[in-house]
């Protein structure tokens, strides 16, 4: 069973539908016990960092996320990746979970680059280990205004608005991606399948 953590940070339907398409049983839940009992944990998220952090605390899920990120195959997606880092510039500056050391910054205004970045951008995987079905270079679907800086656990990079940023991190059993694999067609599904096999 895969637990998809529901902490009122966006719509989780497409994440669940992607695992359905892979034939993997998943459940959307806010119940800490159900999350801790799951074999694998997905930590999605769309929206603002400050409300995501306060929702996590109100739902009593902060420690659950820390515990699962340390102990289980864990997959952060989009905002669910960003708040794994130490700090984000969003909402005037927010301290986040600090599970991965690094900073999340806003894209600078640069002529010709709209913020948020919305659409398909190329990811270059620097760590190809565990990638079976997904290619080492492909476009994935992004929707974001903030990005994580390159860090020692960066496993894939993307360029936008004059910066090269972390598109994916891998730290032991924890994977996290800025893009949305659940909305990235067959290649995104292949990446989710690679994670299921990791």
């Amino acid at each position: 069973m895969i637990a998809i953590i529901d902490y009122k940070a966006g719509n989780l339907t497409s994440v669940k539908l992607a695992f359905d398409a892979l034939g993997a049983e998943s459940r959307i839940t806010s119940d800490p016990a159900a999350i801790v009992a799951a074999e694998r944990v997905v930590f999605p998220g769309v929206g603002a960092a400050a409300s995501a952090m306060s929702n996590l605390r109100e739902l009593g899920l902060e420690e659950t996320v820390r515990q699962c990120a340390a102990q289980k195959p864990f997959l952060g997606i989009c905002l669910g990746m960003q708040i794994l880092f130490d700090h984000t510039e969003e909402d005037g500056g927010v301290d986040t979970l600090g599970i991965i050391s690094g900073q999340v910054r806003r894209f600078r205004d640069l002529p010709g680059f709209k913020v948020p970045e919305i659409g398909w951008n190329q990811v270059d995987f620097t760590d190809g280990e565990n990638l079976g079905g997904a290619p080492l270079r492909a476009e994935y679907y992004f929707v974001h205004s903030y990005y994580a800086e390159i860090c020692p656990w960066t496993a894939g990079t993307t360029e936008y608005a004059g910066v090269k940023f972390t598109a994916m991190v891998k730290k032991d059993r924890l994977w996290a991606c800025q893009f949305h694999p659940e909305k990235s067609g067959r290649i995104g599904l292949a990446l989710l399948d690679d994670w299921l096999k990791s």
Partner: peptide, 8 residues
């Protein structure tokens, strides 16, 4: 449609 495709 959502069940059948994996693009936005």
């Amino acid at each position: 449609v959502a069940k059948s495709i994996r693009i936005p």
